[in-house]
């Protein structure tokens, strides 16, 4: 049989706090004002990237905050380890978890998922003649889907960072990456050739949590909606 989970992990009573998963890094600071308007006041060190703590109580005893890597927010919420989360649309597109609902566009963390390639090769040949292409990306699924939709098989080299180096070193022809200002691309001799999708951060909730605790989870969605309208 499967190794059992401790029963307390699923304790389904009204006194167990809901968990809100927040992404470390860039988006976290943009979340601050929104959280304040939604009435969420986590203990002050939650935004301190040097703090070793990962879970923070808030002034509301029925809500705790956890801080995880942006890609992991969707996973925590999909598995129900966190009930609510804030997560970029890029991550949702990549994982495409059916267990995650994305009820609100928070309008923060604005950027885009784009294709970029070296200035020298951009526009030099007709991509409709390609059968396959080698792509470096931290979004293998987005890259594969994007090229498959135009009849090209993408061989994806999965990298976690420093994507911009890959074409110049002969690892791949193009990269699929998150672009905010484009300055990193430019500094590495790359040019953005195509926008796959615009990205903003979304409020996400676990599907089962919304079905089984509709009052509590729905109330938080409503608070975030009100906070957005107040902005």
């Amino acid at each position: 049989m499967t190794a059992p989970f401790p029963a307390s992990a699923f304790a389904p009573d009204a006194t167990t706090p809901l968990i809100l998963a927040l992404p470390k890094g860039r988006i976290l600071s943009e979340c601050g004002p929104l959280l304040a308007r939604a009435g969420i006041v986590p203990s002050p060190d939650y935004a301190d990237e040097d703090s070793r703590r990962l879970r923070f109580p808030t002034e509301n005893p029925l809500l705790d905050v956890v801080r995880v890597r942006p890609f992991d927010v969707a996973t925590f919420v999909a598995f129900g380890a966190a009930h609510i989360g804030i997560c970029g649309a890029d991550v949702l597109m990549e994982f495409d978890y059916p267990e995650v609902y994305a009820p609100l566009d928070l309008g923060i963390g604005r950027c885009r998922v784009s294709v970029a390639e070296p200035v020298e090769t951009a526009g030099m040949d007709d991509s409709s003649r390609w059968s396959q292409i080698r792509v470096a990306s931290k979004y293998p699924n987005i890259a594969r889907r994007h090229y498959a939709s135009r009849g090209i098989h993408a061989e994806v080299v999965h990298l976690n960072g420093a994507m911009e180096l890959a074409p110049g070193l002969g690892l791949c022809r193009v990269i699929v990456d998150l672009v905010q200002t484009g300055s990193t691309l430019k500094a590495n001799g790359l040019v953005e050739t195509e926008v796959i999708a615009p990205v903003t951060s979304r409020l996400i909730v676990n599907r089962t949590a919304l079905k089984t605790q509709p009052e509590a989870v729905g109330a938080w969605i409503a608070k975030f909606r009100a906070a957005l309208e107040a902005a």
């Binding site: 167990t16 129900g80 089962t208 949590a209 079905k211 605790q213």
Partner: peptide, 22 residues
């Protein structure tokens, strides 16, 4: 409108509060 996609009227999913499986 998810599920085994053959339902034509009212469909039902059974949950236990606090558990993340059907």
């Amino acid at each position: 409108f998810r599920g085994f996609r053959y339902e034509t009227g009212v469909s039902v999913t059974v949950y236990a509060p606090g558990r993340h499986e059907e």
